[in-house]
Design a protein around this nucleic acid. Structure first.
Lengths: 313, 313
DNA sequence: TTCATTAATGCCAAAATGGCACCAATTGGT
DNA sequence: ACCAATTGGTGCCATTTTGGCATTAATGAA
């Protein structure tokens, strides 16, 4: 391991906050971190870290080296990307992050087909309800609902994402079929909530085409769409669901659309997010494959909702 | 060996023009170069070099990688220098280049003493009559007569360098003692000539303090001062010698100053040259040690010439 | 046409790396 | 205040990588 690699390792130790966490991230033994940090200090002839048996802090020299390591990582990443531009065939590891639903339902089938076409591409699919930092976590591509807050990332819309109001027949038996949005607002709802998106109201256009917002009685919140659907299926709440979460629940009559005359505002679109404009071949091809799979104008999941093009318009 | 080191090796191969020369420079086997270049291409997934069994050329991708490697080398050098700024004690390898005379006579005694004081500093002394490129050859410090032509280098004058005209008693017996510079110009001379400095005339101030130049009959030219002195000692030429080349020849009567009333112009001063303002501790301390050894106003070598302060003034 | 030189490669010894087990000290929780 | 879990350090050893040597093949200069 050379000085550059050790510097990048130092950077990761600092960014993750401990030798142990950095080791876990790299899938190497803690002793490797300890030894390599010692070697780095010996090579540079300067102490970089003050360590106790449970923690560490950076010295002044260490802080300077970390800055340099950041520049080295950036330059090395650029270099490798530049090399990847010369690739004809996609190869290497494609690291993707997405929410559980997106990953499980929409990406995995694409990945399966993609790896049949390009057997020399390895894929790492990381499902996380939390929005991860794709730069520091080393992802090539992320699929998300909503544009990223980080403006240094590149975001491309890949599918629209409409909403619908759904409840089970049992729920309707219990509370009656609501006829106005005010009636609906009194009923218990299940709603999506994460660190980046919080849905606590229904936004729609009234008869005069004005934007309106109705606060809902959100009694159950989760950051996982499947969990929200399960709550609705249980008959104890209705759900304001993004269409991409729907499989066969509507088609099978397990969930019934409510207030279908309401003109709902669209939910945040689905985006592909990546750290640089220069995409390796494998990333660009995969991105295109996902777009093809989801459909150009009408996303694939809208086919699961009968007559959806006439609902909520 | 990691990607960065391999990229730096690629850079050296390209700069030196062959695997063999790069191997010699690094003091490693040629097979190492071959294997590491293959590994680099495999890692990056792109061909960098087109090779025949006797030569190579860069591919387009290779040319891009070389540019990146230059940036990497610069950044890594900066990083290491930054680390060196935190050194308290001088350590590491000090690489010095100088002409044979300077190195042998003046630097070596300083090095001996310096390494007694700082046993953990290693020194590489590279003697070369040619002016070497201290950046690409990786030198910390160069000692030279005359300022460098390369303005990106830092040059510090460390000693003045006066001239004197010398001949052996046998030469004087043969040609008679010259009494004017015109007479001298008729006699055969030995003169210094290198790629950066060519001495083919005598420059002096006349009685009206005007700068004058007398072309000499230079029948023997060399880039090594000791060889020039040997020629003068042989009685077959006189020599216009920089004072720093003189040991005991004048004191012992083996060489005699000629035309001592002549007001000779000074020769190019002796300079220390280094690639960056930021000097590692070892370089700075050594520089100071050389200055101390040579003397502040009157260089040490002028002590070898009796009454020198009254000659050629 | 010949020969010297240069890049490639197999084989093997040496060096470096990484993991495991264990130790010691710190810090957090009770 | 005490205890236990966690984290950094290190010795030992197996594995991997590196580097050198000998040999081969091809190129280019004389």
């Amino acid at each position: 391991m050379d000085t550059t690699s050790r510097l990048l390792l130092l950077l990761e130790v600092v960014e993750r906050g401990s030798f142990t966490k950095a080791a876990l991230s790299r899938n190497i033994d803690r002793s490797v971190i300890s030894k390599q940090m010692s070697r780095l200090e010996e090579d540079l002839g300067v102490r970089l870290l003050n360590r106790t048996t449970r923690s560490f802090s950076l010295t002044a020299a260490g802080a300077e080296m970390v800055k340099k390591a950041q520049q080295l990582r950036e330059l090395l990443s650029e270099t490798i990307r530049l090399a990847e531009n010369y690739h004809q065939e996609p190869k290497g590891v494609l690291r993707i992050t997405a929410s559980t639903t997106i990953g499980h339902r929409y990406l995995q089938p694409v990945i399966n087909d993609f790896q049949k076409r390009f057997p020399q591409v390895e894929v790492e699919l990381h499902l996380d309800e939390l929005v991860v930092d794709i730069v520091s976590e080393g992802f090539d591509l992320a699929f998300r609902i909503g544009e990223p807050k980080d403006s240094s990332l590149i975001a491309r819309k890949i599918a629209r994402n409409r909403l619908l109001l759904l409840a089970s027949p049992e729920f309707i038996d219990t509370y009656g079929m609501p006829e106005t949005i005010e009636e609906l607002a009194q009923l218990p709802s299940a709603s999506y909530s994460s660190q980046s998106i919080r849905v606590g109201s229904i936004r729609y256009y009234n008869d005069s085409n004005e934007e309106c917002e109705q606060i809902t009685n959100s009694t159950f919140r989760a950051n996982n769409g499947e969990v929200l659907l399960m709550k609705a299926l249980s008959g104890t709440a209705y759900v304001l669901a993004p269409a991409f979460m729907i499989e066969n629940e509507v088609k099978d009559g397990l969930l019934v659309p409510l207030l279908t005359d309401l003109k709902l505002m669209n939910f945040s679109d689905m985006y592909a997010v990546y750290p640089h404009r220069d995409l390796p071949v494998r990333t660009r091809l995969f991105f295109d494959a996902v777009k093809d799979y989801l459909g150009q104008k009408v996303p694939i999941w809208e086919n699961n909702i009968p007559n959806f093009e006439n609902l909520y318009q």
